[in-house]
Design a protein around this nucleic acid. Structure first.
Length: 538
DNA sequence: GAGTTTGAAACT
DNA sequence: CAGTTTCAAACTC
């Protein structure tokens, strides 16, 4: 009675079409013949016949393929859609755990995909032990459409919360017809959506924070709003990365995605953040960035911070490769460790190397040019200052004026020559990479009248920019900087002598302030330029 | 638990 | 094949 009602629910034309199987189904039905022999009581939705059965099916194809289509169709109606696929090694369905009505001879051991607990929503998240079958809640589909997870998985509904369920033994006839219709429309409709491929193996290691299942979605997802990081996405739900099969938008489910990583690293602590920042700082200059494979670092960070990274704390990772829709790399912070895929063609590769976004943007030559520019600016400032002093001294007493003029003249020459000499010296150092590194700006020359800003700049620049740039003899560059700032000879100017007259100190202070202002202005512009470049690159 | 969002499936 | 509708799971409140 119920079966009749069910059949009547479907248009008559579909009934006719259900019996008109495609060639694929003919082959399938041929296999079904063997299956019938092996398992006369085979459950219509049985899953994953043993390998021996599959082999027998293959051997039997030639013999049974000549059967009349109608007869084959009739046979197929008695077979499960999964059995009807001869060449497919069934794998576990990403959403449906296991058949409820499996025959004893059937097994899921053929499953190739190694699912993680996360890939199985029906699995207890706490201990990973399989739960009972996921129960559908279908209301309008009678559990006879692919909307129904049970039906899609090839199992009967059992204890589900569905309404008007026809996915049961009582409605087997109607169910088979529906299956035939679906298979006619899409022979792969009941195929597992996740294909496992050895080539897709992810080096047998665990993705940071998750047990990344190998394989990819056969059809691919088409997500638009979820970023493929919610279970709406079939790929994500199956715990696999989106692949080239996907047509998703704004995908974040790719290897190295910061969002994806954040999902698995919710406890990204400030410690690691600081490490990443330091790495980025050290790698901010140079063509190769940080350049150090962070295999151990990655593992370490994983061990330390798995499961705690918040989204906005996430570090920027790029590199999916296979995904068309690359997300825009985060540029929220100028200090962002960026991974580099060593092999862009290798899907799933996550041998990251931290690189600053400024890598390949800020080159050593840029630093040199910048220093040269500073020298020029310093020279200009010194020149302007000297001229200003000369103008002022024009009103002084002859004695003082003579002495002062002499000093000013020497001072002007010293400052200017300092810039010029260090331009040349810098070039020389660039050539041979050697230079007698002068005193450290931060430790020895404390008797020099420097502004706190200058000292801070000198110290900071020494420890980060130039050292990280990998320039030959960073100290040399420091000297260039110092000279450019009006501190010839590493700051050992005549004015630097604390025993000198107060007027000289004042002059020096003014000169330094002038030059410092000019230099800091240039530095500011330079940094803005760097930031802009980094942002553009990011 | 109700309502909303989402994306696959189904349909046109 | 593209656009729309239907559907049920995932998600939010």
């Amino acid at each position: 009675m119920e079966q009749t009602e069910t059949i009547s629910d479907f248009p008559a034309k579909k009934l006719a079409r259900q019996l008109d199987f495609t060639a694929a189904c003919r082959v399938s039905s041929a296999n079904a013949v063997v299956q019938e022999k092996l398992e006369p009581e085979s459950h219509p939705f049985s899953v994953a016949p043993p390998i021996a059965q599959l082999q027998l099916q293959l051997k039997s194809q030639e013999q049974t393929i000549t059967s009349p289509p109608q007869a084959q169709a009739q046979r197929q109606l008695t077979q499960s859609p999964l059995q009807a696929r001869p060449n497919q090694v069934p794998v576990s369905h990403p959403r449906i755990p296991h058949p409820v009505h499996k025959l004893p001879t059937q097994t899921m051991s053929l499953s190739v995909k190694q699912e993680s607990p996360k890939s199985r929503p029906w699995t207890d998240a706490k201990d990973g032990t399989p739960n009972k079958q996921k129960q559908c809640k279908c209301r309008n589909s009678r559990c006879l459409k692919l909307y129904c997870e049970c039906f899609t998985a090839g199992i009967y509904c059992d204890g589900c919360n569905c309404l008007n369920c026809h996915n049961n033994v009582d409605n087997d006839a109607a169910r088979k017809e529906v299956i035939a219709t679906i298979l006619e429309r899409n022979p792969n409709a009941f195929r597992p959506k996740i294909d496992s491929s050895p080539n897709e193996s992810r080096d047998g290691r665990e993705e940071a924070g998750d047990t990344q299942a190998a394989g990819k979605h056969n059809k691919g997802c088409n997500c638009r709003k979820s970023g493929c990081l919610k279970k709406y996405c079939e790929c994500f739900q199956a715990n696999i990365l989106c692949s080239e099969n996907c047509k998703c938008s704004d995908c974040k489910n790719f290897d190295g995605s910061d969002e994806r990583r954040a999902l698995f690293h919710e406890d990204y602590t400030a410690v690691y953040r600081q490490q990443a920042a330091n790495a980025a700082i050290n790698g901010a200059v140079g063509s190769s960035g940080y350049g150090i494979p962070l295999t151990s670092r990655k593992r370490k960070s994983h061990e330390l911070f798995f499961g705690h990274l918040t989204r906005d704390q996430s570090i920027s990772m790029t590199g999916r490769g296979q995904q068309v829709n690359h997300p825009i790399a985060s540029v929220s912070s100028p200090v962002v460790p960026v991974p580099v895929r060593h092999n862009a063609a290798a899907l799933g590769s996550s041998k990251f190397t931290y690189r600053s976004p400024l890598a390949d943007v800020l080159q050593p030559r840029d630093v040199k040019n910048f220093c040269t520019f500073l020298v020029a600016v310093s020279g200009e400032a010194a020149r302007a200052f000297a001229e200003s002093r000369q103008t002022k001294n024009g009103n002084k007493t002859p004695i003082a004026s003579a002495t002062q003029r002499s000093e000013d003249s020497r001072e002007e020459n010293d400052v200017q020559n300092a810039g010029d000499n260090h331009l040349l010296e810098g070039k020389k150092a660039d050539r041979d990479g050697t230079s007698d590194s002068r005193s450290d700006a931060c430790d020895v020359q404390i008797d020099e009248p420097r502004s706190p800003g200058t000292l801070a700049l000198m110290c900071d620049e020494k420890d980060t920019m130039f050292m990280a740039a990998g320039l030959p003899n960073g100290g040399k560059t420091q000297d260039t900087m110092f000279m450019a700032a009006g501190l010839p000879n590493g700051g050992k100017t005549r004015c630097g002598n604390m025993t000198q007259k107060s007027s000289s100190e004042n002059k020096c202070t003014e000169l330094y302030a002038d030059q410092e202002s000019s230099i800091l202005t240039v530095l500011c512009n330079f940094l803005k330029k760097v930031i802009t470049r980094g942002s553009i690159k990011g």
